[in-house]
Nucleic acid binder design. Structure first.
Lengths: 67, 67
DNA sequence: GAATAATGCAATATATATGTTACGATTTAT
DNA sequence: ATAAATCGTAACATATATATTGCATTATTC
């Protein structure tokens, strides 16, 4: 589950801890999402987007593989 | 958790059952997502987008309420 | 290079997304 | 009007997202 959370987070100059606090989630959750080891819920994706000033497509969109 | 799944699904002429089968999920899950009663995972959101030929922003983006 | 901050990660616990089954309601076709 | 298809929803079971705690590793700063 690759994504651009880490890039976006660094662009707005936030640590995992700071981002987690703003969203109301733990640092571990942010860490695992950035490492692609979690499949986050839509609400959490939206909260992340709001915090980094980007849209879902910009942070989480993945082109369909086959066809 | 409002979204445009129902509109997008009807645009590509699929029933809840057909969409569910293509995605590999149950009809109930699609129903509850359309009614805004579920907070789907990112992977499921992506699978829905692929099935209806739209992007995350087109189907699931919600403007942040209070900036 | 030592101190501190930031991050990765593992084990266990809890909350919740999703599955299963079933039935009633609504829509569509005959 | 009846039959069939589609959809809404409830109860319970299961899978998994997230929390909690703790410690190890890497980066930063002095």
């Amino acid at each position: 589950m690759e994504n651009k959370v880490k890039i976006a987070r660094i662009q707005v100059d936030l640590t995992q801890q700071q981002l987690a606090e703003r969203i109301g989630v733990t640092r571990q959750t942010i860490s695992l999402i950035e490492k692609g080891k979690y499949n986050p819920t839509l609400k959490l994706c939206l909260d992340i987007c709001y915090a980094v000033n980007k849209t879902l497509d910009e942070v989480f969109w993945i082109e369909r593989k086959s066809d």
